[in-house]
Design a protein around this nucleic acid. Structure first.
Length: 435
RNA sequence: GCCCCGGUAGUGUAGUGGCCUAUCAUCCGAGCCUGUCGAGCUCGGGACUCGGGUUCAAAUCCCGGCUGGGGCGCCA
């Protein structure tokens, strides 16, 4: 099999000067000066210049300058050293072939001098992704997820895959999508929570999943998606939630570190990525309430933090030099049924915050089946609906805990992206189902 | 789910009852130009979200649908 190129744009070196090379890509721009024309060709790695001279081959010249922008072509030609051209070389074409002609006008310009709205860009995401700054986000995303696998493998975790189609109506806390499953009703999983806990009864001890979350919530904001991804992790034989926070902060640190190594992409995005220092500050819910009240807010014990409180708290922590912080020991009432209580009112739980945004939340879980049943009832759910889940607690279930960590939220904070839709290829929000 | 604000060429915009045969840029097409890299210049092309209503007259005012943006609630 022969690939339709001998070189990528940026792989051409002085070794190729005066030699014939074969290149392929998208026609980004054509600047026709009259007797000479410059065709900017884009491939995976960058752009290069094809320089056509009318005098040399009038027929080829006419044909090549009339190719619509964004068509895919391949070009055969001599590579010439040129100080005037980008990359220090240019291709003088001997012949070329249109592999796929682009229609005009384009629904979205790749190098046009006008901005486009996010909505238009998402409608034409395949073209949007031809821009190197948009690609950069997903290249960084890839690296960050690679570091999740690397880090957790080192910590002796295995990656698992649990069902997205589930029978149990809800673990509470959020609306789920109802679907038809042959003769039964089924639901899309809001998270792998119950399944990853069930894995704790197997002896695998440490598991994680790059999970899809499906949430049927009617919100429409720039930080919510109805389909999102997360790093979901669970580990057994813990002595408390601190064991989990250690893994989480180490994970976040390694993801941030890996992202900071994507120098080229960070430069394209014109961002700064500063790796946070470990350990992250631990602040109990009680202390957080105190801090907020001392800073002019009026909160009673048991109140949830709203957006205003979260922002304010993020600011205060930043001033103290902690961009990342854990808020621990939330009121039991504010947490889902599987959360381990601590005393009467508190829970062995934590949220990871960053500049006022909640990135992750986790806890030690209940491993005693009777307590778990009781908590399910108190939370207004029916233990009958959780039989398969509860069964795994009856034949040897070690103490365990874990967290869920939203990947798109993480990218927003990492790259200072204002709309979460930028962080996922094809976002699903309240109204968008296509593409 | 609640509140606020929008929808004008392919893209992004100007236009608040008659001056709109709708502005500008980008884009597309034709032409000129031998070193462009946001190329330049000349000429041409292309639009008022949909359905009702008010009015002598609606892009402009009113009602509804669809749809976009922001905020809140909830959450990741």
């Amino acid at each position: 099999m022969k690939i339709l190129r001998s070189h990528y744009s940026l792989d051409v070196s002085s070794k190729e000067f005066e030699k014939n090379i074969f290149i392929s890509g998208w026609v980004e721009d054509i600047r026709n000066i009259g007797s000479i024309a410059f065709i900017i060709l884009r491939d995976k790695k960058g752009t290069l210049q094809v320089t056509a001279l009318k005098k040399k081959n009038p027929e080829l010249f006419e044909k090549i300058v009339s190719i619509p922008r964004e068509s895919v072509i391949s070009v055969n030609g001599i590579c010439k050293k040129s100080d005037k051209a980008r990359n220090g070389y240019e291709i003088i074409p001997d012949d070329f072939k249109i592999l796929s002609k682009a229609e005009t006008p384009l629904p979205l310009g790749v190098v046009d001098k006008v901005e486009s709205e996010l909505d238009t860009r998402l409608d034409n995401r395949f073209i949007d992704l031809r821009k190197q700054n948009i690609q950069a986000i997903f290249k960084i995303r890839n690296e960050v997820i690679a570091s999740v696998h690397d880090y957790l493998k080192k910590k002796d975790f295995i990656e698992i895959h649990t069902p997205n189609i589930i029978a149990s109506s809800s673990e509470g806390g959020t609306d789920v999508f109802k679907i038809k499953y042959f003769e039964k009703d089924a639901f899309l999983a809001q998270s792998p929570q119950l399944y990853k806990q069930m894995m704790m009864a197997t002896g695998l001890d440490r598991v994680y999943e790059i999970a899809w979350y499906f949430r049927a919530e009617d919100h429409n904001t720039r930080r919510h998606l109805n389909e999102s991804t997360a790093v979901d992790l669970e580990m057994a034989f813990i002595s408390g939630e601190e064991d989990i926070m250690k893994i989480l902060e180490g994970l976040v640190h390694s993801m941030w570190m890996k992202a900071s190594e994507c120098k080229e992409e960070i430069e394209i995005l014109e961002k700064k990525v500063i790796v946070p220092k470990l350990p992250f500050k631990r602040i109990s819910y009680d202390e957080a309430i105190d801090i907020l009240n001392k800073n002019g807010l009026e909160l009673s014990w048991g109140d949830d933090f709203g957006t205003e409180e979260e922002k304010k708290f993020g600011e205060i922590m930043k001033k103290k030099g902690s961009e990342f912080y854990f808020i621990t020991k939330y009121p039991l009432e504010a947490k889902p049924f599987y959360t381990m209580p601590e005393g009467e009112k508190l829970s062995r739980s934590f949220d990871l915050g960053c500049k006022g945004v909640e990135l992750a939340s986790g806890s030690q879980r209940i491993h005693d089946v009777e307590l778990l049943k009781e908590r399910i009832k108190i939370c207004g759910l029916n233990p009958k609906n959780f039989d398969a889940y509860l069964k795994t607690f009856r034949y040897g279930m070690p103490p365990h805990g874990g967290f869920g960590f939203g990947i798109e939220r993480f990218l927003m904070e990492l790259l200072d992206i204002k709309n979460i839709r930028e962080c996922i290829l094809f976002p699903r929000d309240r109204t968008r189902l296509i593409p």
